[in-house]
Design a protein around this nucleic acid. Sequence first.
DNA 1: ATTATCTATAGATCTATAGATAATGC
DNA 2: ATTATCTATAGATCTATAGATAATGC
Lengths: 191, 191
Amino acid sequence: MRVSRAQAEENRRRVVETSSRLFREHGFDGIGIADLMKAAGLTQGGFYKQFASKEELAREASEQALEQNLAFWQRMREQGGEQAFTAFVERYLSATHRDAADRGCLLAACSGHTRHRAQPVRAVFSKAVEDYAGLLIEMKRQAGVEMSRPQALAVLSQIVGALMLSRAVDEPALSDEILQAAVARLTDDRR
Amino acid sequence: MRVSRAQAEENRRRVVETSSRLFREHGFDGIGIADLMKAAGLTQGGFYKQFASKEELAREASEQALEQNLAFWQRMREQGGEQAFTAFVERYLSATHRDAADRGCLLAACSGHTRHRAQPVRAVFSKAVEDYAGLLIEMKRQAGVEMSRPQALAVLSQIVGALMLSRAVDEPALSDEILQAAVARLTDDRR
DNA sequence: ATTATCTATAGATCTATAGATAATGC
DNA sequence: ATTATCTATAGATCTATAGATAATGC
């Protein structure tokens, strides 16, 4: 039953990884420890030998989701050159991202579930806002445009809001309209 | 124990009203039927004589929240004249609205909780997007500006996103910054 | 001997139902 | 007689813990 130390570490990592996806898909309260452990190929009993509480897992999984998703966009930015910002906006506000919340942006997937979370989880969301805003500023700089911090925060609100609304509504046509409207507003130079 | 038909109707209305506040505060899964009924001054047992399911209450409560909040902004619009849009944006993105989610906009309070709700609840969110977009267009028209539907949807994404992020983050200063950045972006004429 | 994971379970929820109670409304 | 609301509870969760099991690591 006992596994090697390296395997135990790998198992723990897999629980965090799997949870980061399942929390984004179902919300922190939308899935239980038994299902999270099962999805990672383990049973629920071992959970509290690895994590202090579900809240602690929520914090680690949120951090993981943030790091992973941000790293993805950073790679895209590095390859994007002057068009990085536009390419990012179009991809962030794509139907693909909308339909794969479990692999996507932490802010869009879980912002609605942080209100009654403990401080450590909420701190990750503060960091997420800072990190995404920084990413936007870098992308604009690559295009020779100096974007202020308030501008970056406003653009971030815009894309996160559009993605969340596109996921909340019932009608597919309206969902697409919301995404396209935000893309138009952010990429139209005549603004 | 039995009450008059009028009183029963009034009781039912109070359950919906109370739930519309408590769902916005805690999310649909964040509060149970026992607590909802207790907050309305009743006991849990009577619930299923009045409502088919918790999901049905969620739909009615969402509708109520939407109607009530929208009516509030409509009254403000009627009195606001040419400045109605600016006044709305400043008030929607105020610390007061951020700190009173239970009385505020349905979209900002509950959009993160609709993903796994049944179709009837999600339909209310589609209607909410349509209604708020219509409100924005009317406000702009009062200022002599013709706002397109895509523009209205983008502005709605902007304000909902900013309010949600301001509620999700941990640090008060960052929360205020997010709100102010969105206000600036929406009310600055040099855009 | 130590320990990672397992099975089993305590105790507290939650949604939904059953049947009792007591006041309305015919 | 009807019915709005009550108390009580079934059955299914959920978080967290206890103790057994069996493989690692000294």
